[in-house]
């Protein structure tokens, strides 16, 4: 590769920053590369996740946004052939350092998945699952308090208060997803990762989950992967646009959608490709 070509590649990988970095940085990532076997899926991603705000990751399918999300709580560890390089810090602490306990990390960085995946246990046991394994409740009534308050925070309590001991899998899709969110916040995480949480839901359930995300912003840092640009615009404060494994542009959501700096971002947002 000639020097000029290298420069060009360098430039291509350079992330456009539209707007300043977040004021309080919760998670700080530098030069993150991910390889599946020999195939590289992410190229030198530098991104900061702000505290108590919603960061949306957008981009066409296969662009690496879910892969990036799964780096943040080391869910990629469960995939044999996956290798992550670079630096990812949570509150200044390298989460890939040998001294880090991955189990503890995942309790601090919770996750909600694309398809609602409640356990085939009762609604109560679903929410109590995390507090139980982490020993967060000193007594039975403590546990009940945690379950009820988590369900309330997830906006589900009123709908299920009379059937807490029925299976969680019997709920509707939207309710199941809110149950999964309740399950995640019952562990009292600092960051919540959401991987396309509304893609399996109808518009009404989606609206409820979006409303919930907006409320959760008060207490948690949230990173959400979404295919819907309207959703990103509605719920997020910052947006990051990924394309072909490269973080193309990141900045304030308002600026990104009204005045994108990079041609590729503009093309994607206006629906010219993707």
């Amino acid at each position: 590769m000639s020097v000029a070509e290298a420069e060009k590649t360098r430039e291509r990988w350079q992330t456009v920053m539209s707007g300043p970095a977040p004021e309080h940085i919760k998670m700080h990532t530098r030069d993150v590369c991910v390889f599946y076997g020999a195939k590289q899926a992410l190229f030198d991603v530098d991104l900061d996740i702000g505290e108590r705000e919603v960061t949306a990751l957008i981009g066409p399918s296969g662009c690496g946004k879910s892969t990036y999300l799964r780096c943040l709580n080391r869910m990629n560890d469960t995939i044999d052939i996956c290798r992550v390089t670079g630096k990812i810090e949570l509150e200044g602490e390298d989460i890939y350092a040998p001294s880090i306990d991955v189990v503890e990390l995942r309790a601090r960085v919770g996750m909600v998945f694309q398809k609602p995946n409640p356990f085939a246990k009762s609604i109560f046991d679903n929410v109590a699952y995390g507090p139980r394994i982490h020993g967060l409740a000193g007594s039975k009534s403590d546990l009940e308090d945690i379950v009820v308050s988590s369900l309330k925070k997830a906006g589900l309590y009123n709908e299920v208060s009379d059937r807490l001991h029925e299976p969680g899998t019997g709920l509707s899709g939207g309710q199941q997803q809110r149950l999964c969110i309740a399950r995640a916040i019952a562990v009292n995480p600092e960051v919540i990762l959401m991987d396309e949480p509304c893609s399996a839901l109808d518009p009404i359930a989606t609206a409820k989950v979006e409303e919930l995300i907006d409320e959760l912003r008060e207490n948690y840092s949230i990173v959400i992967v979404t295919h819907s640009m309207q959703q990103a615009a509605r719920v997020s404060q910052r947006t990051a646009f990924f394309h072909l494994g490269i973080l193309v542009e990141v900045g304030d959501t308002d600026r990104m959608f009204t005045n994108p700096q990079d041609q590729r971002t503009q093309d994607y947002i206006t629906g010219r490709f993707g």
């Binding site: 503890e104 995942r106 995946n117 409640p118 995390g130 394994i133 995640a184």
Partner: peptide
């Protein structure tokens, strides 16, 4: 047993053996 169940449990900070005991074996 669906991978989603494993992910759900691991994503909550459960260890592998907790996941096996509480989610996978019952299923």
């Amino acid at each position: 047993v669906p991978q989603a169940m494993r992910d759900g449990s691991l994503g909550l900070g459960a260890t592998r053996s907790e996941t096996v005991k509480k989610v996978i074996l019952p299923a």
